[in-house]
Write a protein that binds this DNA or RNA. Sequence first.
DNA 1: CGTGCCGTTGAAGGTTCTCAACCGTGGTGG
DNA 2: CCACCACGGTTGAGAACCTTCAACGGCACG
Lengths: 228, 228
Amino acid sequence: MVANDAFGSFLRDIPRSTPHASTACGLQKLAHLLPICRGSMVPLDPTENSLAYVASGATKLIASASGGREQIVAFHFRGDLVSVPGNAWHSYDLCALVDTQILLFPAREFIDLTRTDPAFEDILLERSLTALHRCRDKAVGLGRKNAQERLASFLVGMAERIGTREDGTTILDLPMSRRDIGDSLGLTIETISRQFGELRKSGLVQTVGRCRVELCDLAELAKRAGHA
Amino acid sequence: MVANDAFGSFLRDIPRSTPHASTACGLQKLAHLLPICRGSMVPLDPTENSLAYVASGATKLIASASGGREQIVAFHFRGDLVSVPGNAWHSYDLCALVDTQILLFPAREFIDLTRTDPAFEDILLERSLTALHRCRDKAVGLGRKNAQERLASFLVGMAERIGTREDGTTILDLPMSRRDIGDSLGLTIETISRQFGELRKSGLVQTVGRCRVELCDLAELAKRAGHA
DNA sequence: CGTGCCGTTGAAGGTTCTCAACCGTGGTGG
DNA sequence: CCACCACGGTTGAGAACCTTCAACGGCACG
């Protein structure tokens, strides 16, 4: 059963150990299993914080500023738990990059339920801190780096998360478009394209078709990313 | 006793209720009370995540990228709890804006100690999520906003946190310099200065001396901040 | 095989940065 | 108490980087 598969992988990915039967049961009742088509938004309650577990697929978390400008705040992949702010300065949407299965929870109830279960005890805190530290590293890039450093930084980060190594080079199959990369790095698609060109010329990167990127020299790329 | 004052305000600010005596005692042993002079860094273990409680004063959390570029990732004020990443792409420092008292904890031990105490149960999670959501809102500004919107956004944010209202106008006594504001917004001091000039000309802001800023029309300022 | 979208490339323009000089405030010492 | 000094802030001109606008190319899908 598909529903059970998604919840099953949730129970495998998130808690540190087997949770209490009552917690698991309560969470299952709380969860909404949502199949989201590529390009569609996860239907969120805009007044409450939400927690979304990515059972399969990949998503982008979009913040909308005035004037139709969009900033992608984070990408997420299978097994990730996303905290989406309900009330904030900007409005947030979670959008599927490919066909995706989401388990959606209201954050408050989720926390109330898992509070007393040692299996969930501080896993949420750990995940939040990881997200916070990623977001801070991202903020450094947005505030203080030029286009090439930002793209290099992006590629190194993706390599860590979804890269596969193959005799010395790292293979990336990116589920996001150039526009998404631009919206994530605070740049335009044209600039992204030009910087890919530069990295190609430097022999650090090869692109195959639209999605595949091969990173030939990850160490040099990290240098160009300005990671201090 | 000064040490007890700092730890006392910690116990008043952070836990939701009175913690177990054993938790409180363990935390007190774990804590290092550090008086930090204006402009000095909090001595952090660069290999471990740290938690810093701001007992008094104000701090900036600085990330250093290569080439001596600095990005201020967050400001903190009395009562705030700061999570400082140990190992990340960029190196982080916590710096006092004014003479400040810090209670410093190693994050791991802090979490281990408070894990089973209902008074601390999810307060850490809540604080982390607040920090995460602030950081995301900041990322939107750094990625997609022009100088004026960033400064307006900064002022509105500070008004929420340390502003005092006085017959219609909001008074801000900023503990940070123009350079700090620039380093926080990904801009130079010159741009900050020019944008202050613009806001003054628009009649939205008055500046008194170096530190005091008076916000005459908070609603209009929020509009200019591009909060959607 | 055609079509449409995504990505690439080029030229012009704008916002912010850089460099430089100046000003004002606040603090110190005579 | 005043004068001076140093630092932080302001203002101006020129340059850099990225954006905008526009046209073209190519992969993937029907």
